[in-house]
Design a binder for these strands. Structure first.
Length: 555
RNA sequence: AGGGCUAUCGCCAAGCGGUAAGGCAACGGCUUUUGAUGCCGUCAUGCGCAGGUUCAAAUCCUGCUAGCCCUGCCA
């Protein structure tokens, strides 16, 4: 008899809708889609949407399409198609079949536009953009009909064909849906469906000089792909009326199981920014090193920082889906990252701010080799070799001349401390230079304490990490912290002023020899310091700090 | 009287008329050769406010208040 393991997925309003649709047999299965515009890099906010759309498809045994929403050739670029695919795959999701492009459907869109014109539901407007704006009215006053609104079907057909064959100039006219100029939904006041752009498109080349607007293309693309649940963010709530209107007025799609749009709130993360425009500004103003700067909330930045796909997926699950405007605390993301890394990261030692230690009573010549576990709670990870000798490095922060109180668990003169995976040592004295900086600490060690506590029963209550000096390997450490000093940076007038000046601190120190060939993007824990990964762009040994260990003491 | 949404613990978030899940954070304690991890415990007599319906209301009704979104030939 097999046991069914039920993993509870947190529920949300979209799952409730799907459950209802499925139980009423409106659909046999679900189909979602992730529809990025190829005009920038994906960020953690996109990851939320990706996890939602692909996750739903997985859980309901449905499908999720990847569709590039490429209806504006002047703003989009093929370069982003590759990076977007890479990021989605890296997160661990696969899309149904080949990736799609809205531009695949341009010919169909054209036919649907003709259908609308023939039904008297669309017209070609030769008013200028400014005139259209004037006639649109405003939030409290209804708009006025365009003088071209009553053009005959035949003439509209002719004009639209001329639009598409390049006989009109850019901006000379536009195809508009004929809906209602006094609607309280601004998007229903005869919205533009097609505009003229003599622009080269990365997919369709120079085949078209008219391009559909988002509102026209999106719902139709969904319908063509048999999407059942079209999920987007809150700012499209009004647009839903247009989405529904269009599908209800195209014969082929006016049926109960047509796609329906549902909106959820976008992710806001404290102390960072999420908008493409703002991220771009950070890059362009050289406030960060690029889109994949480990401080960026981009998928590529987080990857370089050492975040794992699973940690991001766990994060997405933890924050849930709702319609509330919210600001999620960084701690939720950080906890998700730590939870995953704690399980998978081999332990190793690095000294980030080295200070020399001499073991004066260590009589062995050369270097002693010790086998240390890669993970004290997971033996299956095996062991690595560490070294010990009369010359070591410990971290500056782990020594103080006199312990400030009884709770001090590090080294101090006359005090004993355990060197991680090694011996117990006691600090005897130290040298300082002319700036009063400690240069060397002289210690004694207890040779009977390797792998065991002192036999006389005395308690050693502190453990610090170290590396053996003669075999230590030089490494650079990039220590990252939050990019901004304020919770919601978009409210700042000047971006540069609210950047955290300590968001990147570079240190040079040592790692144990086993880290010589550390793999890029692979998580390691430098014990007592935090999780790090080798930088994926540097040839030298450079480690990016992913996240510090939880610290309940320094406060 | 423009319209569309939203309001449950510091931050997320379940709940869908039967008497407030969970996570993060915080705070205690135990274990520990990582001040980590793990484990145990504490943390909303109350669900934006005010009324009403009901034996029973976070859930239904009425009226307020606050916040977000909408006037691109952007998405």
């Amino acid at each position: 008899m097999s046991q069914v393991v039920v993993v509870d997925k947190p529920t949300n309003f979209i799952r409730n809708i799907i459950d209802k649709d499925l139980s009423q047999q409106l659909h046999n299965t679900i189909k979602t889609r992730f529809p990025p515009e190829p005009n920038g890099y994906l960020h953690i906010g996109h990851a939320k949407s990706i996890c939602l759309n692909f996750g739903l498809a997985e859980d309901y045994d449905g499908k999720c399409n990847l569709r590039f929403d490429d209806t504006n050739p002047t703003k989009e670029d093929i370069e982003f198609v590759g990076s977007i695919k890479k990021d989605i795959s890296w997160l661990g999701f696969g899309w149904a079949g080949e990736s799609n492009f809205s531009s695949n459907y341009f010919a169909k869109f054209y036919a649907y536009a003709i259908e609308l014109i023939e039904k008297g539901l669309a017209f070609v407007d030769f008013s200028s953009a400014d005139e259209i704006k004037q006639l649109r009215g405003n939030l409290t006053e209804s708009g006025k009909n365009s003088p071209y609104r009553d053009t005959s079907v035949e003439e509209n057909l002719e004009h639209f064909k001329k639009m598409s064959s390049g006989e009109y100039k850019e901006g000379q006219c536009v195809l508009r849906a004929k809906i209602n100029m006094s609607s309280s939904f601004m998007c229903m006041r005869d919205p533009a469906m097609y505009r003229i752009k003599f622009a080269h498109h990365h997919q369709t080349g120079d085949d078209w000089c008219i391009y559909p607007m988002y509102d026209f293309a999106h719902c139709l693309s969904d319908a063509i792909e048999n999407i059942t649940h079209s999920l987007c963010t809150l700012e499209f709530q009004d647009n839903r009326r247009l989405y529904d209107w269009l599908l209800e007025h195209i014969d082929e799609f006016n049926k109960p199981n047509r796609p329906h749009q549902y909106e959820f709130s976008r992710l806001n993360l404290a102390y960072t920014v999420m908008s493409k425009r703002k991220l771009q500004q950070l890059v362009e103003d050289d406030l960060v090193s690029g889109w994949d700067d480990p401080r960026m909330p981009t998928i590529s930045g987080m990857r370089r920082r050492g975040y794992t796909p699973r940690s991001i997926r766990n994060f997405a699950e933890r924050i849930g889906i709702s319609k509330v405007d919210s600001m999620t605390e960084m701690s939720v993301l950080e906890a998700s990252v730590r939870d995953d890394l704690n399980l998978i990261a081999p332990r190793t030692m690095a000294v980030i701010e080295p200070i020399k230690v001499i073991i004066e009573n260590y009589m062995n010549a050369g270097v002693e080799k010790i086998q240390a576990p890669k993970h004290s709670q997971d033996e299956t990870m095996g062991k690595r070799e560490i070294h010990f000798s009369s010359e070591l490095y410990i971290d500056k922060a782990d020594f103080i001349e006199t312990a400030p109180n009884k709770k001090w668990k590090r080294l101090a003169i006359g005090k004993e401390v355990r060197l991680r995976n090694s011996y117990v040592i006691k600090a005897e004295r130290f040298d300082i230079d002319k700036n009063n900086e400690i240069t060397t600490i002289y210690c004694s060690y207890d040779l009977a304490t390797l792998g065991k506590n002192p036999s006389d029963g005395r308690r050693v209550n502190g453990v610090i990490h170290f590396v053996e000096a003669t075999t230590a390997v030089n490494a650079q450490f990039n220590l990252y912290d939050r990019l901004f000093n304020i919770e919601n940076p978009i409210k700042a007038e000047n971006f540069a002023e609210v950047i955290n000046p300590d968001s990147l601190v570079v240190k040079n120190g040592f790692v144990e020899p086993s880290m010589q060939n550390a793999v890029a993007e692979q998580a390691y824990q430098f014990e007592r310091e935090g999780y790090f990964c080798r930088d994926n762009k540097s040839k030298e040994l450079v480690f990016n700090k992913t996240i510090a260990l939880r610290d309940t003491w320094s406060k």
